[in-house]
Write a protein that binds this DNA or RNA. Structure first.
Length: 703
DNA sequence: GAGCACTGC
């Protein structure tokens, strides 16, 4: 097997510039592969826990990271901020926090160590594993906190949590006085929330907490950026072990991604030893097409080569379909998984020996000046290409086929643009205001989103009455920041309380904050499923998607058994996992509202009766949060946005797609793909609009 | 008259 190419320049620089601790992991890796290793710790005795811990220790001490413990700890303890670059399999996420736990809690007995993760599963899996290694139950000395699931108690000293969760804690206690050390893991992913935490920690250690220790853990490419941000904090480089992956490029660029990927898979199948193939593609459309084509072709390839089994993988796919990609195949077969970015970080498939990379991804880019989101297919970054390639070398040496030329690869940007640079930032700005930041433009941004973006966010928050005309956070803004919702939806909820229709609005807001609740039916079932949805949501048929969600929710909770619920979900092509989440979100929102206003919400009055709420009041609550998201019907039957007069169309997924009678519409999302689409659409009467918005800034032309 | 990458509280 040919050895893979050497690291890129930036990776080498990072390792040369600093003290290098190299090791080769022989144990299991420190991330997703922990799945399925859980032991029912609750049922085990102290003796059993100790025994398991001792057994695991035998594995842990064979890890060279254990051998370098003293040297790593020396750096960590003598610096306030340390950047730790650790590759996959370096054990950094499980071992380092335990080393620190030993040292720091000896000195600060009642304080905690926080380890943040961008994803819930990672936080839960890591805490579960580390508790075993430590020899305790999860939720005792070692625990975790993610939304809907808090396994910590007063004895917890090592706490794994999602970065969203830590930000909540920051908003409630801006000194983080519970903690002696904060470890930010996977910082290179540059999620908005990770960026905010880093900026916040920088201010905190230079202000009220000069004693707080900070460790930033990241993959190679961004080390210098983090180091420079924290006043040249030392970078520690811990090498993991990856198997070599041979990289192959195209000689000529291809113009049809699906065609090129299929050819490549067939070629691999004919020339290479057994091993599964993982193909990275931009989106669902290309994936579905490739699956159909490859499954058709594989029938005609003969029996001298493995039978190709094509499988799709993307987030909108039902979990039962997603599960198929993890099942090993029996017999003379080769699995070909066509995946979105999902398989780049969130999911690991074992058995993959070959990666085919289209070099493309889909990305949602917010246009501040237009006030809309666009969904674009764009080339990936070098970092992303390297991550995708690495998926072929997790268990054995592998090969990667890049469907672009080497000179095209050289032209790719080094890193993916951080999320905060291409997103709407009303929510981050409100969080900063809540924390007490006055000057948002000059705050310690890891990546400053720009003056225009910030001013537009401030303006938006002012219109939602979260800020006063001095730019100071109002008491309404304080409440909005504490609700686990986008500011617009928080505003809707607060309006609903004032209007006396909190319960139906909470149900709808809960539906809106769960992703992929309504699944896309297969084309041949579409009309049938639509009919079923219309027959259940009789008022939604007239008033649109928000009202439909309330009716679907009512229908869902009126079913008794979970078997009935599952059947119903399947029948209407809605996500059962989604609806289970709706129920959780709903009860969380109710309890948060109770806490905010120190009052008890009487849930009994929410009946199964769809007619027990007033449609006009409910939709007017949404107008309070989405004032600018309204459009007026024109004589030619198109809609024009009331803010800019742009043409906007009702999205085909909406209940109102076929409706020709709406005088005006309200929508919660405005997204540009092939043209401007309104999603989650409600019917508006012109008089409703006038009552709420007033005549001043909306031009209304009657149909 | 037609479509949607991924997270988080």
């Amino acid at each position: 097997m040919t050895k893979g190419k050497s690291f890129s320049g930036a990776e080498r620089n990072a390792s040369q510039a600093v003290k290098t601790v190299k090791f080769y992991s022989r144990g299991r890796s420190d991330d997703e592969s922990l799945q399925g290793e859980h032991v029912e710790a609750e049922r085990l005795s102290k003796h059993d826990l100790k025994r398991i811990s001792n057994n695991l220790l035998k594995t842990r001490i064979t890890l060279p990271v254990f051998k370098y413990k003293d040297s790593i700890m020396e750096h960590l303890l003598s610096n306030q901020v340390t950047i730790l670059i650790g590759e996959t399999g370096s054990g950094k996420s499980t071992q380092l926090p335990q080393f620190l736990l030993e040292k720091l809690t000896a000195a600060h007995g009642n304080k905690r160590i926080a380890v943040t993760q961008p994803r819930r599963v990672a936080a839960i899996n890591l805490a579960t594993r580390v508790a075993q290694e430590y020899g305790c139950r999860v939720g005792d000395r070692v625990g975790y906190a993610v939304r809907f699931d808090n396994k910590t108690n007063s004895k917890t000293r090592l706490k794994y949590l999602t970065d969203g969760m830590l930000l909540r804690e920051i908003m409630l206690d801006r000194n983080l006085s519970d903690y002696t050390c904060v470890i930010i893991d996977e910082a290179h992913e540059r999620t908005i929330l990770t960026d905010l935490i880093l900026g916040f920690l920088k201010e905190l250690i230079h202000g009220l907490r000069p004693d707080l220790k900070v460790v930033v853990m990241s993959a190679t490419l961004q080390a210098e950026k983090f180091s420079a941000f924290f006043n040249d904090a030392p970078i520690l480089f811990v090498e993991g072990r990856k198997y070599p992956v041979q990289r192959n490029y195209l000689k000529e660029p291809c113009d049809d991604v699906v065609d090129a990927i299929i050819r490549c898979c067939v070629q691999i199948n004919q020339g290479e030893q057994l091993g599964d193939i993982l193909c990275f593609m931009p989106g669902q459309e290309e994936i579905d097409k490739a699956v159909v084509v490859l499954n058709k072709i594989s029938e005609h390839l003969g029996t001298s080569v493995p039978r190709l089994i094509a499988l799709p993988l993307y987030a909108a796919l039902p979990p039962s379909e997603q599960a198929k990609v993890f099942l090993p195949l029996k017999g003379f077969k080769r699995k070909v998984v066509f995946s979105t970015n999902l398989a780049e970080t969130s999911v690991t498939i074992s058995g993959v020996k070959f990666v085919v990379d289209s070099g493309l991804r889909k990305v949602k880019v917010w246009r501040h000046n237009l006030g809309l989101a666009t969904l674009l297919t764009v080339p990936i970054s070098k970092a992303s290409a390297s991550q995708r390639t690495g998926r072929a070398g997790r268990e054995n040496p592998g090969k990667c086929y890049r469907l672009y030329r080497e000179q095209d690869y050289q032209k790719l940007p080094m890193q993916t643009e951080p999320e905060i640079a291409r997103s709407e930032i009303t929510s981050p700005v409100l969080m900063l205001k809540k924390i007490g930041v006055q000057d948002i433009v000059n705050w310690s941004w890891l990546e400053n989103p720009g003056k225009q973006a910030i001013l537009l966010a401030l303006q938006e928050l002012y219109q939602l009455k979260a800020l006063d005309d001095q730019g100071k956070i109002t008491s309404k803004g304080q409440q909005m920041a504490l609700l686990p919702l986008a500011p617009h939806l928080s505003c809707v909820l607060l309006q609903a309380r004032d209007s006396g229709c909190l319960l139906p609005v909470i149900d709808i807001v809960s539906c809106l904050s769960v992703e992929n609740l309504l699944l896309n039916p297969l084309p041949e079932l579409r009309d049938e499923i639509n009919e079923k949805r219309f027959s259940i949501a009789t008022r939604g048929a007239k008033f649109g998607d928000l009202i439909m969600m309330k009716e679907l929710y009512n229908a869902y909770v009126s079913l008794r058994s979970s078997a009935e619920k599952d059947e119903w979900c399947k029948d209407l092509c809605v996500s059962k996992r989604g609806f289970r989440n709706v129920v959780k979100v709903r009860s969380q929102l109710i309890s948060y509202m109770e806490k905010l206003f120190n009052e008890k919400i009487d849930v009994s009055e929410t009946g199964m009766d769809n007619d027990s709420f007033d449609v006009k009041s409910v939709i007017q609550c949404f107008l309070a949060g989405f004032m600018k998201n309204s459009a007026i019907g024109m004589p030619d039957r198109s809609f024009r946005t009331s803010t800019t007069g742009e043409t906007i169309s009702v999205h085909p997924s909406s209940m109102l797609f076929m409706d020709r009678s709406c005088p005006a519409i309200l929508y919660t999302e405005y997204i540009f793909t092939t043209k401007g689409y309104a999603r989650n659409v409600s019917r508006l009467e012109l008089s409703w609009l006038q009552e709420i918005v007033g005549m001043s800034n909306v031009k209304i032309s009657a149909r």
